[in-house]
């Protein structure tokens, strides 16, 4: 695997913040719900029974995990393709390092952008350091949105590529096995 010094430094940057770190009970709770809440009248009570918490403790912990940003959102997770958004593209940009934050925040504000991350370059194979995901009903709709982003976020002259998806071999929520093991 190609690893550069700047990539290693970049990894530290991601961990620099004083972030809320979930404890073992949080991990067990996350493991219990990451595949979805039970669709029953009192879902938090049912989850609580599985992990050994009172319903109200489940609710409090979820609120804390949401406030602390460990859980980005809690709700209905749609599958775009099944809802008619047939085209999805990962758009990758080679942005000057000094401008990644500014441009990333500009791209990330649009609701048709469903992910926007800084990632390391892997030269010489891979020069791009800013990634966003765009969904649309068809390819034309996605390309229009890319053009709109170029205009709106002042990305003219910035090298980028649009990687449309072809086949989906697998799609499901993340399963953190360590977390599930802790629950056993």
């Amino acid at each position: 695997m190609v690893i550069h010094a700047d990539d290693l430094r970049a990894r530290d940057v991601g961990e620099r913040e004083q972030e809320m770190r979930p404890d073992d009970i949080d991990r067990r709770l996350i493991a219990a719900i990451q595949g979805g809440l039970p669709l029953v009248s009192r879902p938090y009570a049912v989850v609580g029974e599985q992990v050994g918490l009172e319903e109200r403790e489940v609710i409090e912990r979820l609120r804390r995990l949401l406030d602390g940003g460990v859980i980005k959102r809690l709700g209905v997770v749609v599958r775009h393709h099944e809802l008619g958004y047939r085209a999805n593209a990962m758009v990758v940009w080679d942005v000057p390092d000094a401008r990644v934050g500014e441009l990333g925040r500009c791209l990330g504000q649009f609701d048709f952008v469903t992910l926007c991350y800084r990632r390391p370059r892997r030269r010489p194979h891979w020069p791009y350091n800013l990634f966003c995901m765009i969904h649309g009903r068809d390819r034309g709709a996605v390309l229009e949105k890319v053009e709109y982003l170029v205009e709106t976020c002042d990305l003219r002259g910035i090298e980028h590529e649009v990687l449309f998806s072809r086949r989906r071999f697998k799609q499901r929520g993340a399963i953190y096995q360590g977390a599930s093991e802790a629950g056993r």
């Binding site: 990451q34 979805g36 995990l65 460990v70 859980i71 997770v77």
Partner: peptide, 26 residues
């Protein structure tokens, strides 16, 4: 409840649950 179950069975939704911030839990 029936509506959400139906959407889950048809694949229109993958779950009613959390979207996790990458690299915070594992």
């Amino acid at each position: 409840l029936e509506g959400l179950q139906g959407l889950q069975e048809s694949g229109a939704i993958s779950r009613v649950g959390p979207v996790l911030q990458p690299r915070r839990v594992g």
